[in-house]
């Protein structure tokens, strides 16, 4: 490449105006020529450095598939953990603590009676109702017995 061409390209290069093809042309020139003018020595070093930096690769390649699988697995783990946490939270929330237990102390009724099919569990009320009913039955029984005795008397007399 003519030196005039090199100057034009170098000027354009440092103005940021060169195309990729022109930059490759410059890179080839500096790589192949050892008798570079002094003013372009720094430019030659730059291009040589870029070539070296381009070959810089990581020691270990990231395995894309493995990383993807790990991602999915981690999502599952996080998902399951989240659901478990929610369930535990709900369980804790609905489980009454010792202080909050409020079980009504209610003794078993001693007396129960049914009036017209209605169950009465109040002891005193049931007792009173039962007593009243039994009194009625008793009075009826006494009345019936008196009637029976009277009829028996007439039968005997006749």
């Amino acid at each position: 490449m003519e030196l005039s061409r090199v100057k034009i390209l170098v000027d354009r290069y440092f103005d940021g105006l060169t195309s990729l093809d022109e930059e490759q042309e410059l890179a080839r020139y500096f790589a192949k020529n050892s008798d570079i003018p002094e003013e372009y020595q720094a430019v030659k070093m730059m291009f040589a450095s870029f070539d070296t930096l381009r070959e810089d690769t990581p020691k270990d390649k990231v395995e894309v598939k493995r990383r993807k699988a790990f991602t999915i697995s981690r999502r599952w783990i996080v998902g399951v953990a989240a659901v478990a946490a929610i369930l535990i939270g709900v369980a804790v929330a609905i489980t009454p603590t010792e202080d909050s237990i409020d079980i009504p102390v209610q003794a078993e009724p001693d007396y129960v009676c049914y009036v017209g099919g209605v169950k009465i569990e109040d002891d005193q009320l049931a007792y009173a109702e039962a007593s009243r009913l039994l009194s009625v039955v008793s009075e009826d029984m006494q009345s019936a017995m008196a009637e029976i005795n009277r009829l028996t008397y007439y039968n005997i007399v006749k």
């Binding site: 070093m45 730059m46 040589a48 450095s49 870029f50 070296t52 930096l53 810089d56």
Partner: peptide, 10 residues
Amino acid sequence: TTKDMASLTR
């Protein structure tokens, strides 16, 4: 050396 120059440029 080229490597040193590259390191310096980096």
